[in-house]
Structure formats: C-alpha cells, structure tokens
C-alpha cells in the first residue's frame, strides 16, 4: 500500500479536500458547498476519495484539517494535525510561488492578508466582525439579481465605465447598488463598481497600512471572480496572481502540512467513515467553573471525540 496525504479545509461556505501522493502530486481535489452540514459534506467527499484510494491501492499516511470546522472534523476523522487556515493557506502559497510576498485570501466569511518574507510568514491580519467584501456578500448579490455566481463574474468584466459603489458596509453597498440600478446604470458597470468597492474596502480595513508588495497571490473561493482580480490589480497597481489550485489552497496547504508532520501511524479512522452514521450532541461540562459547552461526536452510539472544551481535557 502506498501512502497518501489528506488535507481537509472545512470553511463556512465550502468543504475542500485534497489528496497528495508522496511526490506532492494532487491525485484528488474536490470543492463542494457545505449547505449547513459540514459532517455530511465531508462524508460526501470521502465517498469519492475512498473509491479512488481503492483503485490506486493507497492508504492515508497523515491527515490534517483546517478551516473554521477544523476541530469538529478533526475529531470526527481522527486528524493528526489540526491547523489554522492562515498557516495552511500560506504553506500552499509558498509551495507554488516560493517568492510570494503578499497573500490575499478571501473566503466565504473571512478575508485575510498574510505578509511573507523569504518564505516565512511574518505578519497577518484578518477581518473583524464585518463580512463586507467576502464571498457570502457576492453570493447574496448574485441571488438578488437572479444570476449564478459565475455569471456575476463574467458580467462584471464586461464593464466599460464602472460606477462608484459605497463599499464600507454590505447593507449600504446594497442600497447604493439599487440606487444606481434605478438611476439607469448598466448591470455590468454596477457589478464592476462593487468589485472595486470590495477591493478598496479590503485594503482599507483588513490590510490597514500593511505593505502589500508584489508578487501578490489571490486565493480562496472569491479568487474565481475575474472582476475581483481585476479590481485588486487596479487598486494595487501590480499583477495579481491567481494560483493554479486557487479554490482548494487551504486543503492543499493542509495536505502539505500533514506530509511534513512526519507521522508514523495516522490516527485516521478509516476510509469507510462515509458509511458511518455520525451525529453530534451538546452537553455542558461541570468539572470546573468554566462550564464549557462540549460537543460530543457520536459514531453509532460510541463517542469518538469531543470539541468545545477550554481546558484541553479530551
């Protein structure tokens, strides 16, 4: 049996899975939308992966989870490494573009900027409570206009005279877009204006004066949007590179981190995990005054993991 390395990125909007062989080739990559249940979406990915692993006679050498659902899925799958998404994304970016200086990552709910010097991360910033300028806002605008997110991307780059949209807050941006629409601006110009507003908002409120030097990488789900790429190029005055595996960079980085963890024997709970009936249950731990809300992960009547504890007890 040959060993492969698995990275799972459980984000707010999508679940991404990347499976590498020991020469760092991507054998399997999948991007699925979460639709409210991370456990089921990971199981769906695992179903496909299990078939591939059987065909190629491979086993999991190490597993790393990342993204906002990393603790939950890590406990469920038996992860060897649980890593934050900032480090995972940076690892993947440095692998593909060793000379990278700035990584802009825009996902479903988060937007982050990571500053890299000589192949190591030296600084980062992440958006606070405001979700303006992230994927979910673009999603909701696409829904409002009754077009797909891909169509939104195509339409925005057809614009010739992008109009100015207020980008500080999604609610105001939306009213402004409706205002411009009633004034008679074309949809293309409004959408491109929105992209400019998002890029401006990102540079003003997330990057906040950090030096954004070239080469700049744009990754995460929103990097598939051509209008956003163009808007960033415009705002930064340099080329913005969208890396090869831009949609699954988090999972790719996680898989690389799993490979580098030098795990002798993986804690992975088996490729057949997608057939198991897995659900969760909330309990309050009363061992200390913290009274943490613990989530127990139950695999057919057996508790296989717990998350949510603040004291580090398992």
């Amino acid at each position: 049996m040959r060993r492969g390395f698995l990275g799972i990125d459980v984000g707010s909007i999508s679940t991404n899975v990347v499976f590498l062989d020991k020469d760092r080739n991507i054998l399997f990559a999948s991007y699925v939308r979460v639709s409210g249940n991370p456990i089921d979406s990971v199981k769906a990915c695992m179903k496909e992966l299990a078939r591939l692993m059987q065909d190629k006679e491979m086993e999991i050498g190490a597993l790393c989870t990342t993204g906002s659902g990393r603790e939950l899925i890590g406990a469920m799958m038996g992860a060897d490494v649980v890593k934050n998404e900032i480090s995972a994304h940076a690892r993947a970016a440095i692998e593909l573009h060793p000379d990278v200086c700035t990584i802009i990552e825009i996902g479903g709910q988060d937007s982050k900027v990571t500053i890299v010097e000589n192949g190591t991360v030296v600084d980062f910033a992440m958006n606070l409570v405001c979700a303006a300028g992230t994927g979910s806002f673009l999603d909701s605008q696409a829904r409002r206009l009754d077009i797909s997110i891909e169509e939104l991307s195509r339409r925005s780059i057809r614009s010739t005279h992008p109009t100015a949209i207020a980008g500080r807050c999604t609610v105001f941006a939306e009213s402004d877009m409706i205002n411009k629409q009633q004034m008679g601006h074309t949809q293309e110009d409004i959408l491109m204006g929105l992209c400019h507003a998002l890029a401006r908002n990102f540079i003003g409120s997330v990057a906040r004066g950090k030096p954004l030097r070239a080469p700049v990488l744009l990754q995460g789900g929103v990097s598939a949007n051509l209008g956003i790429v163009r808007a960033f190029e415009n705002a930064l005055g340099c080329e913005v590179i969208v890396p090869k595996h831009h949609m699954v960079m988090g999972a790719y980085g996680a898989a690389l981190l799993a490979m580098e963890a030098n795990v002798a024997k993986s804690r992975f709970r088996g490729a057949a995990i997608w057939t198991h009936h897995i659900h969760t249950r909330g309990v309050v731990c009363e061992d200390c005054p913290n009274n943490c809300e613990i989530i127990e992960i139950i695999d057919t009547d057996e508790v296989v993991g717990r998350t949510g504890g603040r004291c580090g007890k398992r």
Binding site: S68, K83, N84, I86, T120, V121, F124, M126, L128, V129
Partner: peptide, 28 residues
C-alpha cells in the same frame, strides 16, 4: 480587540497563526 460579538473561533485562529509565526521566528 474584544466585544460581545467577538467569536471565540476567530480569536483562536488569530492566536494560533500568531504562534506559528513566533515558532518559525524561533527556528530562524
């Protein structure tokens, strides 16, 4: 920075990423 909307997960992500940076500084 903390207020009542501060999400524990977001804070943990920042802290973890920060510690990753510090460990790599240590190694260098």
């Amino acid at each position: 920075s903390f207020d009542e909307h501060t999400c524990a997960l977001g804070m943990a992500t920042r802290v973890e990423a920060f510690l990753d940076i510090l460990w790599s500084r240590r190694r260098r």
